[in-house]
Design a protein around this nucleic acid. Structure first.
Lengths: 201, 201
DNA sequence: CTCGGTGATGGCAGCAACTGACGTCAGCTA
DNA sequence: TAGCTGACGTCAGTTGCTGCCATCACCGAG
């Protein structure tokens, strides 16, 4: 038998989520999390650079899913479609069985600003990588940035809906709906010529 | 003569930016900032809840500008146009003279994750308020969320461009360009019928 | 079988970011 | 003149986090 039980990071992660959910994030100390699984604070911080990071581990898989989606898109697909493919691929990581877990996790995050900040930063990081992937495909710089931003916005909004009480649709379906709605919203109407009374450059 | 020099928050803010720019954010202690303007650490934290917050003070004006833009939009304007009006109004707060200041400030932020996280959170907060303002106008829930998200995305991207070295255009002009580009990107092409091979609901 | 390397952990000291409680004092007001 | 208030200082204490060094089971080389 090994000297230490294996899977320390996973055990810490689970214990942390439970403690955060019951006592709250700020009311839970890193030492408590560690001790609850038979480890010390020092070891906790060896596995997670941050106290918050314990809730954001495994995001590499999410990033990879986005990137895989990009890679799988036909090479002649317009940027938005590529972004849509990325979102669709990412949505795969969240089957309905995972909804309860995602719900409690998000509930914890929604109650604490530091956690919200970390989450936003993670999403922004993904958006940046997505934009890079698009540029690598030859997409124009600005277009890549915009498409990536739209992608993660759609994903974020769809995820929020997916988490809601009573929501039955799959994340995949919701994502498609949100994107569809976005495309409808941005539809230019035949309106009266583009407005020109802007300060000249 | 007053017992204490007035404008403590402003002095702290300026000193902090200078110190952050020269020594770096993490290498600068709250005590140093306070002492550099003849105050104590305790007083620093009385004015700013956070060490980071010293860089994000006065965002109320930015929020107000977005909201004013919404209020100024014609009541029958579609959500996207309202969001565009909000962005346009916000862009007003950043005349070209302010570019150097914004540049050094952003340089500091770009070098430190905690600061980036705080900035993203501020923007997300504005997006939420913008969405609320749209809903108050009777815009559908999801549509409001999407339009608001698009608005702050456009603003964020435009701001990034405005900051770039050699950029000559005004933030107002850049914002308009970015939005135009976004609308073009999301244009549906006559393509072959909407894809239907999606898992049924 | 022994020996040295390796990896995961514990223990400890220490700094910086905050926080709460309390004291101080100029200026204003009654 | 007495009392109140607002802006600040002082001090002690908690927590997040880091560096440094010790420990010890395991594993491969000899």
């Amino acid at each position: 038998m090994a000297r230490w039980a294996p899977g320390a990071p996973e055990r810490l992660q689970q214990a942390a989520l439970e403690l955060f959910a019951s006592r709250g994030f700020e009311q839970t100390t890193a030492t408590e999390i560690a001790q609850s699984v038979g480890l010390t604070e020092r070891t906790f911080f060896r596995h997670f650079s941050d106290k918050r990071e314990v809730l954001f581990h495994g995001q590499d898989r999410l990033v990879q899913a986005f990137l895989d989606g990009v890679a799988a898109a036909p090479s002649d697909a317009p940027p938005i479609e590529v972004a849509a493919a990325a979102v669709d691929s990412a949505a795969t990581l969240f089957p309905d069985e995972r909804r309860p877990h995602s719900r409690t996790r998000q509930a914890v995050i929604d109650k604490n600003r530091p956690l919200q900040e970390r989450e936003l930063h993670k999403l922004a990081g993904i958006a940046a990588l997505l934009a890079d992937a698009l540029r690598a495909r030859g997409v124009d710089d600005l277009e890549a940035t915009i498409a990536a931003e739209i992608g993660i916005a759609v994903f974020g909004i769809a995820f929020g809906q997916w988490i809601r009480d009573g929501e039955k649709r799959s994340l995949t379906d919701i994502s498609a709906d949100v994107l569809r709605e976005l495309l409808t919203l941005t539809e230019r109407r035949p309106g009266p010529a583009p407005r020109s009374s802007r300060t000249s450059r």
